[in-house]
Deep mutational scan, measured.
Amino acid sequence: MSRVPSPPPPAEMSSGPVAESWCYTQIKVVKFSYMWTINNFSFCREEMGEVIKSSTFSSGANDKLKWCLRVNPKGLDEESKDYLSLYLLLVSCPKSEVRAKFKFSILNAKGEETKAMESQRAYRFVQGKDWGFKKFIRRDFLLDEANGLLPDDKLTLFCEVSVVQDSVNISGQNTMNMVKVPECRLADELGGLWENSRFTDCCLCVAGQEFQAHKAILAARSPVFSAMFEHEMEESKKNRVEINDVEPEVFKEMMCFIYTGKAPNLDKMADDLLAAADKYALERLKVMCEDALCSNLSVENAAEILILADLHSADQLKTQAVDFINYHASDVLETSGWKSMVVSHPHLVAEAYRSLASAQCPFLGPPRKRLKQS
């Protein structure tokens, strides 16, 4: 649940008159999402009104509101027999009622949201009550392989729920002597030191190019640089560091992050930047690179990204790559990247197969709970 924001200063709310007192009302909304995959969808019983329910879910471990999704594969009634019906059901509720908006969509073979439908307002739910769409999607369109909505005969539904909580009022009075504290510009100011090479005390040599930097900042941000300058190493004695395995453009992006906490060109060089972040123990930059690479996972590059993640101990990226390969196994196994990995990294192939087997055979063990970014 997000923290209630402070109200904007009255002088910034309007260029008009300023009242002596004010009130700011925040209506709290808890948002969460749920993904439900139905394997072997074409084998569902086709009687009209037949119901399939998901397991229950909530916004978190401490949330007492429990929900589930309900599907009628062949419609709810005679009117909707040519459609799939989809509903959000409130299973248990400690209150007399709650209000919530919802959005349903289908994830296609690429994991993209399609055929989205959402409620136009927050509906009133009581325990045992459901709301949804009797005519969510035509069955003939859903079952047509050309539309790519049932890869490997799996129907994957994605649901986003927004639950309306209580409202909170914050009130106060205006004073004539309003003090406005300026925003912190530390990142910009440190970035200026790097860009202008002011007050530098060490030189970093990268592929024949020299960059002036500040030992204190490098040591504070990177345990690797800290070790170089702290001990009686040649880098500490000469205040000069030779860097041979990072390209200059990648190095500059890494230094921008060290000084400012930002990497504006990360998406263009996420793979190389991940390697640099791993070498210099820049954990936050490493996770930022993992996130960017996750966003660009595809059938063509899944094997290469899995190898990269394994090489640099990028655990979150590795998990996402394995899950992606499992979901698109029939396509990924035909790529040149996968065939190369079979020869060069057989242990990763074995890991992917083990994960695929456990996903398809849940009876082999208890269900695993899916539970950071600093």
Rank of each mutant, 00 (worst) to 15 (best):
M1L: 00
R3Q: 11
P5K: 02
P7I: 01
P8I: 01
P8D: 04
P9Y: 02
P9Q: 14
P10I: 11
A11E: 02
E12Y: 13
E12K: 09
E12Q: 08
M13K: 06
S14I: 06
G16R: 08
P17N: 05
P17A: 10
V18Q: 07
A19Y: 06
W22Y: 08
W22N: 00
W22M: 09
C23N: 06
Y24L: 14
T25M: 12
T25G: 00
Q26M: 01
I27W: 11
K28P: 13
K28T: 10
K28Y: 14
V30D: 13
V30E: 05
F32D: 04
F32P: 07
S33Y: 10
S33C: 11
Y34G: 04
Y34T: 01
M35S: 08
W36S: 01
W36N: 01
T37S: 06
N39C: 05
F41Q: 11
F43Q: 14
C44M: 05
C44S: 07
C44R: 10
E46F: 09
E47Y: 03
G49R: 01
E50I: 02
K53N: 07
S55E: 13
S55F: 07
S55Y: 11
S55A: 00
T56K: 08
F57K: 00
S59K: 02
G60N: 09
G60K: 10
A61E: 05
N62D: 06
D63A: 11
K64F: 12
L65T: 11
W67I: 00
C68T: 15
L69V: 10
V71G: 14
V71M: 01
V71D: 05
V71L: 13
N72E: 14
P73L: 02
K74C: 13
G75E: 03
G75Q: 14
D77K: 10
E78D: 07
E78G: 07
S80V: 08
K81A: 10
Y83W: 05
S85K: 11
S85L: 04
S85V: 14
L86H: 10
L88W: 02
L88C: 07
L89Q: 10
L90I: 13
C93S: 15
P94I: 10
S96Y: 14
E97P: 09
V98C: 14
V98R: 12
R99N: 15
A100F: 00
F102C: 00
F102Y: 01
K103L: 15
F104N: 01
S105D: 12
A109G: 04
A109K: 13
K110W: 15
G111D: 12
E112N: 09
E113Q: 03
E113R: 06
A116L: 12
A116C: 12
A116F: 06
M117K: 07
M117Y: 09
M117W: 09
E118L: 09
S119D: 01
S119T: 12
S119A: 12
R121L: 11
R121Y: 13
A122I: 13
Q127D: 13
Q127Y: 12
G128H: 03
G128C: 13
G132W: 00
G132F: 00
K134P: 04
F136I: 07
F136M: 07
R138P: 14
D140Y: 07
F141E: 14
F141D: 09
L142M: 14
D144C: 02
D144H: 01
A146D: 07
N147S: 07
G148N: 13
L150W: 11
P151S: 06
D152W: 10
D152T: 00
D153Y: 08
K154D: 10
L155A: 11
L155T: 07
T156H: 02
L157V: 15
C159H: 10
V163C: 10
V163A: 02
V164T: 07
D166G: 13
D166A: 02
V168N: 09
I170E: 01
S171C: 02
Q173W: 05
Q173G: 02
N174L: 05
M178D: 03
V181T: 06
P182M: 02
C184Q: 05
C184G: 01
C184E: 10
L186I: 07
D188K: 05
E189D: 04
E189C: 02
G191S: 09
E195M: 06
N196I: 13
N196S: 13
N196F: 12
S197T: 11
R198S: 15
R198Q: 09
F199T: 15
T200D: 15
C203R: 10
C203S: 13
L204E: 00
A207K: 15
G208D: 07
G208N: 13
Q209N: 11
E210H: 14
F211D: 03
Q212M: 15
A213V: 11
H214D: 12
H214A: 08
H214Y: 03
K215Y: 09
I217P: 10
I217L: 02
L218T: 11
A219R: 09
A219K: 15
A219G: 06
A220W: 06
A220Q: 14
R221T: 14
R221W: 05
S222P: 00
S222F: 11
S222D: 02
S222Q: 00
V224E: 10
F225K: 00
F225E: 00
M228L: 14
F229E: 13
E230N: 15
E230I: 15
E230K: 07
E230W: 13
H231K: 12
H231T: 15
E232V: 13
E234C: 15
E235K: 02
E235H: 06
K237W: 05
D245A: 05
V246L: 03
E247G: 02
V250D: 06
E253G: 02
M254V: 05
M254L: 04
C256W: 02
F257N: 13
G261Y: 12
P264V: 12
N265D: 08
K268N: 01
D272H: 01
L273Y: 03
L273H: 00
D278K: 09
D278L: 10
D278F: 03
K279N: 02
K279R: 06
K279V: 06
L282G: 13
L282K: 01
L282D: 03
K286H: 06
K286F: 02
V287H: 03
V287S: 02
V287W: 07
C289E: 01
C289M: 11
E290H: 05
E290V: 11
D291I: 13
D291H: 13
D291N: 04
D291P: 12
C294L: 11
C294S: 04
C294Y: 06
E300A: 09
N301K: 08
A302Y: 02
A303Q: 00
H312N: 04
S313K: 09
S313A: 08
S313W: 12
S313E: 13
A314L: 04
D315I: 11
Q316W: 09
L317S: 03
L317C: 09
L317Q: 05
K318L: 06
K318G: 12
K318F: 11
T319Q: 04
Q320I: 12
A321C: 04
A321G: 03
V322P: 00
D323I: 06
D323S: 07
D323A: 07
S330L: 06
V332C: 13
V332N: 00
V332T: 08
V332G: 00
L333A: 05
L333N: 07
L333G: 07
L333W: 11
T335S: 10
G337I: 09
W338Y: 05
M341S: 02
M341E: 00
V343P: 10
V343G: 15
S344H: 12
P346V: 03
H347Y: 05
V349C: 10
A350P: 03
E351F: 11
A352L: 11
S355N: 02
S355W: 08
L356H: 05
A357Q: 03
A357F: 01
A359D: 12
A359S: 02
Q360P: 14
C361R: 12
C361H: 14
L364W: 15
L364A: 11
L364V: 14
G365H: 13
G365C: 14
P366V: 10
P367A: 13
P367Q: 15
P367D: 15
R370S: 07
L371D: 07
K372M: 05
Q373F: 13
